[in-house]
């Protein structure tokens, strides 16, 4: 359990599990608004772990955290908007 004190190890474990969940959603043929929101939420959590614990920006100047995390939010929002348009 000591290994989980290292944020990188924790992030890696969560990333593996999250990838498994996305794969499973694909296997069961999850589709529609709920599935899209769930997959985007998982991608956001994963992307944030990479930014904060792999790129090690948790302790970086605020501007750089905002730029990288803002990119995640921007990309996620554009995808959500486009999928919402396709459902209409």
């Amino acid at each position: 359990m000591n290994a989980l004190h290292n944020p990188a190890h924790r992030a890696w474990l969560i990333l593996l599990i999250a990838t498994g969940i996305t794969w499973y959603l694909g296997e069961v043929g999850a589709a529609g608004t709920g599935a899209i929101v769930a997959m985007l939420a998982i991608a956001f959590v994963k992307g944030r772990l990479v930014i904060l614990d792999f790129m090690e920006l948790r302790g970086a100047p605020l501007m750089w955290r905002l730029l990288l995390e803002g990119w995640l939010i921007l990309v996620g929002s554009l995808i959500l908007l486009a999928y919402w348009m396709s459902l209409k």
């Binding site: 991608a43 994963k46 930014i51 792999f54 790129m55």
Partner: peptide, 21 residues
């Protein structure tokens, strides 16, 4: 940092192109 970016991009690309429908 560059290597992590490659990872970050695939984390969006995989669900977007392979799974989301």
């Amino acid at each position: 940092a560059y290597w992590h970016m490659v990872d970050l991009l695939w984390i969006i690309l995989f669900p977007l192109v392979y799974v989301m429908r």
